[in-house]
Design a protein around this nucleic acid. Structure first.
Lengths: 207, 207, 207, 207
DNA sequence: CTGTAATCGAGACGGTACGTCTCGTCTTAAT
DNA sequence: ATTAAGACGAGACGTACCGTCTCGATTACAG
């Protein structure tokens, strides 16, 4: 069912993964597929352990042999599904690419998948095991993708080389997450552009 | 028990509040005091409805008459308690004040209270009723406080007047929330300064 | 509303009754009228204190000043209403009268009011205060009525004078209550007649 | 813990029973044992679902999977315990046996167990599910036991053959239940004998 | 009349039990 | 040996009704 589980993230995350026998693979992909569907239909709240077990035909005990918690299953299912949700932008210019990335992430947050993303971030707060999966299967990929873009920009001299990539990432995308989580401001393209502009040129007046 | 409930937030939030008869006041302050203690002792998870009812002597039914959910109680208790958690900075210079504010919020996030804040943000994702209380009793106050600082800075010409206060707020504090929620980076003073520096001067090279 | 409260049962029962000022009278009759309606509509379960207070306009505190429990209110309301539910029979013969009485009680038990009667008997098991009202306002009247019939029968020599009235009452009506409470047998006229016949002639063979 | 669950009552009652896997058996017997103790200590009021769950170690959810209500649990626990509470009498004569049975039931009603019996009868009035269990686990057995005694008496010609067993049962024991439920008369041996005498010889004068 | 004390309506409140829900573990039998 | 099926303990949830209480308004009687 899951045609391409992708590269094993244990290489880079140290996540303890189940040995990948054929049976295990079938179990994992059935569970993830069912979870994907449930997330789409009713958000994280619908992806209860019983619902995943019921729909996938994988028993609850087996699920807990493969994942530490339901959040972990949901995080992996979401991560595999959404890995390509925000494709790298290619506008020809560094500034265009950055602006486009922020817009796309903003649009993603505002989409139905953004709701699930928000619920996952929330669920991971109380579930360290799930958080590891969320980082391994989603966040790490996203940050890595942006890190590539940032590295190219630094190389070209288009951005300040003394700002490390973590700070740059958080400066551009943190404001969007703030709005997503606390809901005080719309996630429109204009708002995204305002953030990008402020982040690129800074808050101080041009002298 | 509740020395100063502060100005009634219904003025600005439209939150439907309980009529403040003497009995109601005693109930509210007992419940909030108990909740404060529970939050301090065991975080949001410890502040269950039963625990709040048990410790405060306020019955569950009465709690549900005054608040829509346990998240709402916790949000109000936390908000009243933490309203002064990040005092306005006064270093003499606008840049110093901004830098100090970001440092203080970063330190707050890294403190035990930051854990509760994180849990509250998470809980509000699935609880719209609680989210209203969280905004009314905590977030709104924080944003208003920063808005004052920003307005002064604009007046003095120390910051760009074309950046609206919402964008400025999110640019300076969003990165910290990003780190708090997804836990990928430490919340140190140095990290806070790096964010402030990048936000103030922007990501583009100085020409 | 309550045109005739009847003779004060405190004369014979020692029930502590409220002094009958005009206000008290209005309170009592409003409450009893509302309770009667509720009993008719939904049985004893519908006659909650809140429902009685709501419909009658008498506050809960006042209700508890006049009665010891909701069962007591229901018992009095039911008793006043049902005092005439089983009128004395007058067939011309003692045996006919006895048979008719048993039939009528059986029919009463089988009627909608019988359901309320059953619920009241049950409620009084856990509520001694209510039980006193039930006896005072219903059971005592019923037993007294039958006692009159029995006394006449004894006078006329139509029944055994060595059977005391309590035993006679219980022998004729106990079987019906047994069936009402445990529901193992229908409450038909034929069944009533079978009981009467067995009670009158005894279980031993005629020699 | 449950030494002899006895014959499965579903054979004769159609009660939907839980499949008796080993786990189910342990759950059922633990719950029933705890309920028995609670009934003994504080009557039906003490046998709350929470108390049963707490003492037996069986969770509330599981209790509700096995029984429709707490009354049902109490009825089964009481019924299994009390099945032998009124042993068949064997005095050598039919009349002696009948008299002894009525005395024993009267004594049972007057005993602490009689209080629980009374409370169960009352509780079953508002709980059809519980009533089915009460009939299946207690009443049916009692009536069956008496039916055997009655059948022998009929065979021997010691009692009227035209009185059906249901009528006979109710005539002898209904008066006792009347007194138990409405509490207007003592449950002494003498009172029991008076009932038996009146029931056997009838209320009409010997001609 | 009119003050004043009892009484009342309204409904908030603490308490207690309810029956439900989801989690993550454990048991059993089948493959 | 691993699995599906699902029973199970744990424990929080939100609700219902009880009987008590507080409070301010109304009433009834005494001066």
């Amino acid at each position: 069912m899951d045609p391409d589980p992708g590269p094993d993230p244990s290489e880079r995350t140290g996540l303890l993964l189940h040995p990948q026998t054929p049976r295990s693979l079938r179990v994992r992909s059935s569970a993830l597929q069912a979870t994907r569907e449930l997330l789409r239909e009713g958000g994280l709240a619908a992806a209860t352990i019983d619902a995943i077990a019921g729909r996938s035909g994988v028993s609850k005990a087996t699920l807990y042999k493969h994942w530490p918690s339901r959040t972990a299953i949901a995080a992996e299912a979401f991560g595999r599904d959404m890995a390509e949700a925000v494709p790298p932008s290619d506008t020809g210019t560094t500034l265009g690419d950055l602006r486009e990335q922020v817009r796309r992430v903003s649009a993603f947050y505002a989409s139905p998948e953004g709701r699930v993303y928000r619920e996952l971030v929330a669920a991971c707060v109380q579930d360290a095991g799930g958080a590891a999966y969320f980082r391994a299967y989603f966040l790490a990929g996203r940050r890595r993708a942006f890190a590539g873009l940032w590295a190219r920009a630094v190389e070209r001299g288009d951005v300040r080389p003394d700002v490390d990539v973590e700070t740059a990432t958080d400066l551009l995308f943190g404001p969007l997450l703030f709005r997503l989580m606390t809901g005080h401001w719309p996630l429109s393209d204009d708002a995204a552009d305002a953030v990008t502009d402020a982040a690129l040129h800074g808050l101080l007046p041009r002298t």
